[in-house]
Simulated scan of single mutants.
Amino acid sequence: MIVDYDPGWPGQAAAAIAELRPVLAGVVTEIEHIGSTSVPGMAAKPTIDLMAAAPRLEPVGSRAGKLAELGYRPHDNGMTDRLLYVRFDGPARSHLLHVVTADSWPTRNQRLLRDYLRRHPSEAERYGRFKKELAAAGVHPGDYAAAKTALVQELTDRARAEAGLAPVPVWEKGA
């Protein structure tokens, strides 16, 4: 489900980050709001995406119990370069927490794309409109990511070029 931008999303992200900081203190160095809900004015799935940087991923696992108390459950989606936690509000996924290594933090596609779309509102509008078109066409949720790959790759390549970085594939699922 793609919805119009909700000006409450940044506040929801800030509240989630405030809850996570004490739980992840000492094992992560940064936590930011990423994804479509972090881009002002952009249509999105109403899921708050967060990304945290950790010097090492292993110690984050020791906080699984505390994360579970906040509703975050580990989720394996095939990505080998991060830990992923999902939080639900009833049957709907409300939050995603990606924990990545601090050394990869500066070049993370999700952060670069977010910043690019914030600087280029017309591209954010184009991307949001495309997502709405996919939803209106009845694209199955399981096929949604694949259906938008070409546009996400194009926008991410532009974001990386602006940052002086070479293009890389946007979908990072492990081999």
Score class of each variant (00 low, 15 high):
Met1Ala: 13
Asp4Ser: 12
Tyr5Trp: 15
Pro7Arg: 03
Gly8Arg: 14
Pro10Ser: 01
Gly11Arg: 08
Ala13Glu: 03
Ala14Ser: 13
Ala16Tyr: 00
Ile17Leu: 04
Glu19Cys: 09
Leu20Val: 12
Pro22Met: 03
Val23Glu: 03
Val27Cys: 09
Val27Ile: 09
Ile31Glu: 10
Glu32Ile: 10
Ile34Arg: 00
Gly35Ala: 00
Ala43Ser: 15
Ala52Met: 06
Ala53Ile: 09
Ala54Tyr: 06
Ala54Gln: 04
Leu57Ile: 06
Glu58Val: 13
Pro59Trp: 07
Val60Arg: 00
Gly61Gln: 11
Ser62Thr: 15
Arg63Gln: 05
Ala64Trp: 06
Ala64Phe: 07
Gly65His: 07
Gly65Ser: 14
Lys66His: 14
Lys66Gly: 10
Ala68Thr: 07
Ala68Glu: 14
Leu70Glu: 06
Asn77Ser: 08
Gly78Thr: 09
Arg82Gln: 14
Phe88Gly: 05
Gly90Ile: 09
Pro91Gln: 12
Ala92Gln: 13
Arg93Ser: 01
Leu96Gly: 02
His98Ile: 02
Val99Gln: 07
Val99Lys: 05
Ser104Cys: 07
Pro106Gly: 02
Gln110Tyr: 05
Arg111Ala: 07
Leu112His: 01
Leu112Ile: 02
Leu112Asp: 04
Arg114His: 01
Leu117Phe: 01
Ala124Cys: 10
Tyr127Val: 08
Arg129Gly: 08
Arg129Ile: 04
Arg129Glu: 15
Lys132Leu: 08
Ala135Lys: 07
Ala136Ile: 01
Val139His: 05
Val139Met: 06
His140Arg: 14
Pro141Ile: 01
Tyr144Phe: 15
Ala145His: 09
Ala145Trp: 11
Ala146Met: 01
Ala146Asn: 10
Lys148Pro: 00
Ala150Ile: 04
Leu151Phe: 02
Gln153Ala: 14
Thr156Asn: 07
Asp157Pro: 02
Arg158Gln: 15
Arg158Glu: 13
Ala161Ile: 06
Leu165Arg: 11
Leu165Ser: 10
Ala166Met: 11
Ala166Tyr: 13
Pro167Thr: 09
Pro167Val: 04
Val170Tyr: 07
Trp171Met: 10
Glu172Met: 11
Glu172Lys: 13
